[in-house]
């Protein structure tokens, strides 16, 4: 019996050997596909295309971007999570379908188990804005008005159930004021409604143009990092509110991605971060660099999922 087990063990080892060898196989040797789980045209999608374009020169293989949009990015991520971890299909992600959506909706993957995080590269800003001709000069004044006029403050956020929505909802809930959230199809629509005076406030990433024209006043930044072009605007956290969720972007692959693949992409991403075209892209999108390597990102995601779950439960915003 014992001999039998030993034989089996040997056989298993022998069988495992070629796959261990495969893990050290040169990478990449054929085209790489990056799934963009969002609609074409947004910051997420465009960043993927810029990175793919720079990476193809570094890796010396074609890097193809394929859109598989749906359900706030969860469809594309779910599909990649089920693929073999060979490093030839990666997925671009934003923090919303990784850290936030799994806590408020059903998603077809477990963000802490089913993915190998390769790296993080960008954080976008989504400040809370009011019209420049509105009476509110600070966030405190807006909150005070909302307190005196329950439900009268109508506001919109770029994506429903996204980082900016949850952070701002948490802000109002912790201040114990009643407001009216108006869902929109995206940041551009939110800005249109703000510009048209249909809503009082909006939190969206499309603030640069209106800010430059002096049409809007930035009250606070909903994310954790201050905006380079508006350094005086404080974050929700800095102002003492419970959540400042980041909208950040990164790359991931199916769970069990070989170490040499992760290493290759880590080196590539580092070079991308320094590439002038990538820097220009960040500036054009009003985003900031937000680099993390595979190990740091994996740790951050776990920590964020844990702490966010607690906060959302306390506020009664988590999925039942």
């Amino acid at each position: 019996m014992l001999r039998h087990t030993a034989l089996l063990l040997l056989a298993t080892l022998a069988a495992a050997a070629p796959s261990a060898q495969a893990a050290d196989a040169p990478y990449p040797t054929k085209p790489i596909r990056i799934i963009s789980p969002f609609d074409p045209g947004g910051t997420s999608d465009l960043s993927t295309r810029v990175i793919a374009d720079i990476a193809k020169d570094i890796l010396k293989v074609p890097v193809i971007v394929e859109n598989r949009p749906g359900a706030g990015g969860t469809v594309g991520i779910g599909q990649v999570a089920k693929l073999p971890p060979d490093g030839y299909t990666l997925v671009q992600f934003s923090s919303s379908p990784i850290v936030i959506r799994p806590l408020v909706a059903n998603v077809p993957y477990d963000p802490t188990k089913d993915l190998t995080y390769v790296g993080r590269y960008l954080v976008s800003h989504s400040p809370l804005m009011v019209r420049a001709d509105s009476p509110w000069k600070t966030l405190a004044e807006l909150v005070k008005y909302a307190e005196a006029n329950p439900g009268k403050v109508r506001w919109a956020a770029g994506a429903p159930q996204g980082a900016a929505h949850l952070s701002t909802e948490a802000l109002f809930r912790s201040a114990n004021v009643k407001t009216t959230f108006v869902p929109t199809g995206g940041g551009a629509e939110a800005m249109l409604q703000l510009g048209g005076g249909q809503i009082e406030a909006a939190s969206a990433t499309d603030f640069a143009g209106p800010m430059a024209e002096g049409k809007v006043r930035l009250l606070a930044e909903s994310g954790p990092v201050r905006i380079a072009t508006a350094p005086n605007v404080q974050t929700y956290k800095e102002l003492g509110y419970p959540l400042s969720l980041a909208v950040y972007l990164g790359l991931a692959g199916p769970a069990g991605l070989p170490p040499n693949v992760v290493k290759t992409w880590d080196d590539t991403l580092k070079q991308v971060m320094e590439h002038p075209r990538f820097k220009e892209f960040l500036k054009a999108q009003n985003a900031s660099p937000y680099y993390a390597n595979s190990a740091d990102l994996t740790r951050d995601v776990k920590a964020e999922v844990g702490s966010l779950k607690d906060t959302l439960q306390q506020m009664g915003m988590a999925k039942k």
Binding site: P40, A188, L192, G209, E213, F281, K283, A284
Partner: peptide, 26 residues
């Protein structure tokens, strides 16, 4: 306005912004 009316114009907006051009009233 720098506001895309549909997915196609959103892509064009993206193409312009990558080049450092921000469409808008100016």
């Amino acid at each position: 306005l720098g506001i895309p009316a549909n997915a196609i114009t959103a892509l064009m907006l993206g193409a312009l912004m990558i080049q450092g051009v921000t469409p808008g009233p100016k």
